[in-house]
Amino acid sequence: MRRIPNFASIRAFEAAARLESFAAASDELHISPSAVSHQIRNLEAVLNVELFVRHPRSVELTVKGRALARRLTKALDGLEESLSPWMPNAEQLGLSVHCAPSFAAKWLSPRLGRLMSEPNPLYIHLTSSAIAPELTRHEEIDVAITYGAPIDRIGVTVEPLGTELIVPMSSPQFFNATQMQNVDTLKPGSLIDSQLSPVRWSDWFEHEGVPHRANLRGLSFDRAALVLSAAADGLGIALESTRLAETELSNGTLIILEGWKPPLKQEMHFLCYRTAMKGSRKIERFKEWIMKQIPAA
């Protein structure tokens, strides 16, 4: 007979040690943090060794705990690899993502097919609104992708999704890009305002070193997708991220207006998640996948 402690205790300890969090381990194993703690206490009792030092808001591996964790992770990796040929229906990891509406519609949704086509796909439950969720209160949401500004909360980790190019764009029928050399060529009422964008037309005029003219203001929308749609319909000039306009730019319904200084660059979208979830397998996998989709600006 093999002298091996309860396997549930081994899994709980290995996950908590690897993720450095009882909360993240509970998410990965789909059990409560108290159950994780109970299983680890059982393992400590069987081995007669302290594996974690418990602090009021965190845990820390002891020297013996770290040594055991290295061995167990290696052993479980080998076990997983040995069993994988006989496990055609691998674990289906689900991730709840709350996303800024235009990023969801214009950029993320068209790429989800790529994620679903990968081996052992990550299943996404996607919700969207312009208001960033309180991640520390809404634990049903795993990840939030915000627009304009990151979530500034204690207990929330924020990672920018790369730098984006902000440029003026219009329909080819609305404006001949080859003629755009100075502000006098802009028509009154031609500038479409993107209300929630952190980069406004006033910033663009300041970047160009020319005065901002009030008579140039035209339509105004609270969604980048609506701004781009209006520009593609020939209703004016949008000042938006080329990341959100990639479809329109590729099919020619929008063109970038040339003849000005180099485009503005800014971080516009941010990946946010609870710090306690750092190291969670599904979040790490989503982060790795989404960063591969983002070219350098």
Rank of each mutant, 00 (worst) to 15 (best):
V158W: 00
V158S: 15
L161I: 05
T163L: 14
E164T: 10
I166K: 00
V167M: 14
V167C: 14
S171D: 10
Q173K: 14
Q173Y: 05
F174I: 03
F174P: 06
F175C: 09
F175K: 01
A177W: 03
A177N: 04
T178K: 10
Q179F: 11
N182L: 03
D184H: 05
L186A: 04
L186Q: 08
P188F: 11
G189S: 04
S190C: 07
L191N: 11
I192R: 12
S194C: 13
S197Y: 12
S197F: 07
R200W: 02
W201S: 01
S202P: 00
S202F: 00
D203T: 05
W204A: 02
H207N: 08
H207R: 03
G209S: 05
G209A: 10
V210I: 15
H212Y: 15
R213A: 01
F221T: 05
D222Q: 06
R223K: 09
A224N: 11
V227Y: 09
L228G: 07
S229K: 15
A230E: 12
A230V: 13
G234K: 03
L235T: 01
G236K: 11
E240P: 01
E240N: 14
R243V: 02
R243E: 06
R243I: 04
L244Y: 04
A245G: 08
A245R: 04
E246S: 14
T247H: 11
E248C: 02
L249N: 07
N251A: 03
G252I: 14
L257P: 02
E258R: 12
E258Q: 13
G259S: 07
W260E: 04
W260H: 14
K261R: 15
K261S: 14
P262C: 02
P263K: 04
